[in-house]
Write a protein that binds this DNA or RNA. Sequence first.
DNA 1: CAGGATCCGTAAGGATACTG
DNA 2: CAGTATCCTTACGGATCCTG
Lengths: 138, 138
Amino acid sequence: MTSRAHTGVRSTGHTDERAPEDCPVREVLDRVGDKWSVLVIVMLGRRTHRYSELHRAIDGISQRMLTLTLRALVRDGLVDRTAHATVPPRVDYALTDLGRTLLEPLNALDRWAILHRDDIRAARERHDRARDPRPDGT
Amino acid sequence: MTSRAHTGVRSTGHTDERAPEDCPVREVLDRVGDKWSVLVIVMLGRRTHRYSELHRAIDGISQRMLTLTLRALVRDGLVDRTAHATVPPRVDYALTDLGRTLLEPLNALDRWAILHRDDIRAARERHDRARDPRPDGT
DNA sequence: CAGGATCCGTAAGGATACTG
DNA sequence: CAGTATCCTTACGGATCCTG
């Protein structure tokens, strides 16, 4: 997150790498597929939040990661940062119009996840049981 | 990829962590948000491929990563593996029905990326120019 | 309060060599 | 051909302490 400039495929030296058709999906995932971005986006999709609110709401995130994630989102024009010159300081984060448009495809993924999480879980257990039978119960 | 068991939020010791609403999106991203999975899925979305075909098509991927990615996808029931007992050996990979359903939300993301990649690029340049003005042209 | 600066462990992923 | 096995580098992310 600190300085990713590549598009998803890192070169080894030759410059002619090609994904299926340049695959824009990977571009999105490169900036939103990390551990926290979507969580932040979902939160801001509900309403504007200030830094401390996000920190409390997204349980488990460190200050460092929250800051880094927000910075990246602001940089990409998905999130708006508004610093109020009060004391103590107060900073509000909100989705931009662009950021809001991202909510739709994200919700599509969300619906898919809800619909098929059990299938995946089942497939995995089937698969694991096949290669590690463990006849008894230890 | 080798052994991720957590749901997206790692605990520090207390057990009451909560994402916005358990956020299933993150679940999907945990298994498909990595560097290669979607590329593979997209390729298999076009047609069945054998190992070597994928290796050549997805330029930049290492054997190790292709194998690991495929294994995870098979395990999750998104991809089917068919080994033909010929010599030389031949292994075909194809999307399962479940895997095919994932193509839709993925395409939604894809469309979003295509539609807004320029906005993001623009926002980023604006942002970067703001904090690193570089008046002349060095 | 809203971060910035550091330090550090882990895990993702690349390169390479080898095998059924 | 379709992988395995190993080694090694890096980048991601957590913990902690400090500041305007």
